[in-house]
């Protein structure tokens, strides 16, 4: 499974989000590959889900068919855990 962590530039915040996502997926016992990238690249990369900010969610979702989740605070593992749980349960359907 491949997950993208996306921010405006793909250099700072998205790298932090990638680390948070890796920890959360690991804690949930799910093997994933997480890449971080900028918003433009994200639209053209194959993946299973995208995690980004609320401001970028709609722009990305309009260009991709995979689910896009809005994270408020990229280091908040509680928030991210809730979103990952939601993603995994929706994926099972």
């Amino acid at each position: 499974m491949k997950i993208l962590a996306v921010c405006g530039f793909g250099v700072g915040s998205s790298m932090i989000l990638k680390m948070s996502l890796e920890t959360v997926f690991k804690n949930q016992g799910v093997a994933v590959e997480v890449d971080n990238t900028d918003v433009t690249t994200a639209k053209s990369v194959n993946c299973d889900a995208i995690f980004t900010s609320a401001e970028l969610k709609d722009e990305i979702q309009s260009s991709v068919s995979v689910p896009v989740y809005a994270v408020k605070k990229y280091m908040d593992k509680t928030e991210i855990n809730t979103l990952v749980t939601q993603f995994l349960s929706e994926r099972r359907k």
Partner: peptide
């Protein structure tokens, strides 16, 4: 970047990581 992309550089409560390319 904050004007364009919003305050998502606030990574956790009260902590921001201002940056650009």
């Amino acid at each position: 970047a904050v004007d364009k992309f919003g305050p998502y550089i606030v990574l956790i409560d009260n902590f921001a990581l201002p940056h650009a390319q």
